[in-house]
């Protein structure tokens, strides 16, 4: 396991621009093992871009992302190996439509970690059982509902045994009746001690599961603190304004 004193993820002076549009304007954050950090803020404020920089799906324009003490953009870093320990769940699920639910989970462990097929399948079945999808193992994603796809995407990431899970608005594309099931799975993960970084618009959920809340607006962390501090006693006027609009 990892040294508790070294953050799992650390960003140093993280900047990201798309063309002339500056999206991230210097973010310094440390996320420690076991922490559940939610990121809230207005659309276009940089939340998702920040999250996507953490596994270098977006390459920072400047600044550095450290994962367990290693600079991810360093030439000597094996990015694929580190990414295996950084699970990510997307707004639009991004399950692999040409593979069955079971294959969605097993393909990467078999290909990249050289796990024997039988063992990978056994583990995958256990994961599917945990999220109530064991009877869907041999179905293709087309036959699954949005909520089922997202639960599949979560266990697909879990099958790599990550040290941290990143969630990019995991319930934003779901029908309302599907949201709870997915949030419960994430909550279960958080309570089991998994380090989670969650971009979300579900304020009730954020308040309930977070150890720490980041309010990202205008490309910076405009405010951060415990859920009580941020939701009940926001100091920054922008936070107050945002919360008054969404709560």
């Amino acid at each position: 396991m990892t040294d508790k004193n070294i953050p799992i993820i650390e960003t140093v002076d993280l900047h990201k621009s798309f063309g002339s549009l500056q999206v991230l304007k210097g973010i310094n954050e440390k996320i420690y093992s076991g922490e559940v950090v939610t990121i809230i803020g207005p659309s276009g404020g940089g939340k998702s871009t920040f999250l996507r920089c953490l596994n270098l799906l977006e390459e920072p324009t400047s600044g550095t992302v450290y994962f367990e003490g290693n600079a991810l953009d360093s030439k000597s870093t094996n990015l694929n190996q580190h990414r295996q320990k950084i699970g990510m769940v997307f707004q639009l699920f991004n399950v692999f439509p040409h593979l069955t639910a079971l294959e969605n989970i097993t393909i990467t462990p078999i290909l990249e970690k050289k796990i024997p097929k039988e063992q990978a399948e056994k583990e995958a079945m256990e994961l599917l059982r945990q999220v109530g999808l064991e009877d869907k193992a041999n179905e293709y994603p087309r036959k699954l509902s949005g909520g089922q796809k997202q639960r599949l995407a979560i266990v697909r990431a879990m099958a790599m045994h990550p040290d941290v899970m990143l969630f990019d608005e995991p319930t934003s594309a779901l029908d309302p009746e599907m949201v709870k099931g997915v949030l419960n799975v994430i909550k279960g993960l958080a309570e089991s001690g998994m380090t989670c970084v969650i971009v979300t618009h579900e304020m009730g959920f954020a308040r309930e599961v977070s150890d720490r809340v980041l309010f990202i607006d205008g490309g910076i962390v405009a405010e951060e603190g415990t859920p009580e501090e941020v939701f009940d006693h926001p100091k920054n006027p922008r936070t107050k304004e945002f919360l008054s609009q969404v709560l």
């Binding site: 596994n55 799906l57 694929n80 190996q81 580190h82 990414r83 295996q84 320990k85 950084i86 699970g87 990510m88 997307f90 639009l92 991004n94 399950v95 692999f96 393909i107 990467t108 290909l111 990249e112 995407a153 697909r156 990431a157 790599m160």
Partner: peptide
């Protein structure tokens, strides 16, 4: 594009 992102985020080469 999400397919590539999902695969690469899992650590697939």
């Amino acid at each position: 594009k999400g397919q590539t992102e999902a695969a690469r985020s899992l650590g697939m080469s």
